[in-house]
Simulated assay, not measured.
Amino acid sequence: MKAVGIEIDKKRAICVIVSKDANGILQNVTGKTKYIEIKDDHNNQEIQDFLQKVETFFDEVAPNSIGIISRQTKGKFAAASVSFKLEALIQCYKKTEITFVSKQTLTAYYKKNELPVSYDNAYQENATRLATYLLR
């Protein structure tokens, strides 16, 4: 089984792939694609390229589950509008259901459970936590 955890941060979707073998062993198998980024969200070609990259990435990985960390829509800590555009493009993927998990849910889960896999860069921590959570 494979799960992709995604954290959307400004103009990039940070992606981590965690696999689970028949013995229940979890492993980070992210590889070279650590994030998918867009530079100009008003450029139609870049939007289409982002969607193409997302679909190609998911097709290559063939995940059993995909999750996105929920972000606030209102208030002082509301996420940037471009991040919701990226989220909508990711949700266009039809081959695997995409679920949303809040940071509070992940925090509560990891207060009682250890993160059994490592990540390469600090910015990948939340996406790694999510991918691992999806395979629990």
Rank of each mutant, 00 (worst) to 15 (best):
Q45R: 08
E60L: 09
L106S: 06
F100N: 14
E125S: 05
T30V: 06
I17R: 08
G5M: 06
T56H: 11
A88C: 10
E60H: 05
A22L: 09
I14S: 05
L134T: 07
I25D: 08
T105N: 10
K94H: 11
I68E: 01
M1K: 10
I6P: 02
I38C: 01
L89S: 02
F58L: 12
K112M: 07
E60A: 09
E125W: 03
M1V: 06
N126M: 13
R12P: 01
I36F: 06
K34T: 06
V101I: 15
R71Q: 10
E55Q: 14
F58T: 04
R136Q: 14
K34D: 00
Q48A: 13
L134N: 10
A127L: 05
R71I: 00
F100L: 13
K111C: 11
R129Y: 07
A13R: 00
T128S: 11
R136W: 07
I38W: 03
K39V: 14
I47T: 01
D49L: 11
F58Y: 14
I38F: 02
I47P: 00
D41P: 04
V117I: 08
Q72E: 14
K39Y: 14
E125D: 03
V4P: 01
K10S: 14
F50Q: 02
T99L: 10
Y119S: 02
S81G: 12
I14L: 04
C92A: 07
E114I: 14
L51F: 02
D9Q: 09
A127N: 06
K34S: 08
T132E: 02
I98E: 10
N121C: 02
V54L: 09
D49M: 12
K76T: 13
I66A: 02
A108E: 15
E37H: 12
A78K: 15
T132G: 06
K103E: 15
G31S: 09
K34H: 07
K111F: 13
I17V: 15
V61A: 13
I69W: 05
T33H: 08
D41L: 03
Q91E: 12
M1I: 02
K94I: 05
E87Y: 06
P116W: 10
E125V: 12
Y109V: 11
L26V: 04
N64W: 04
K94V: 06
Q48V: 09
A88Q: 03
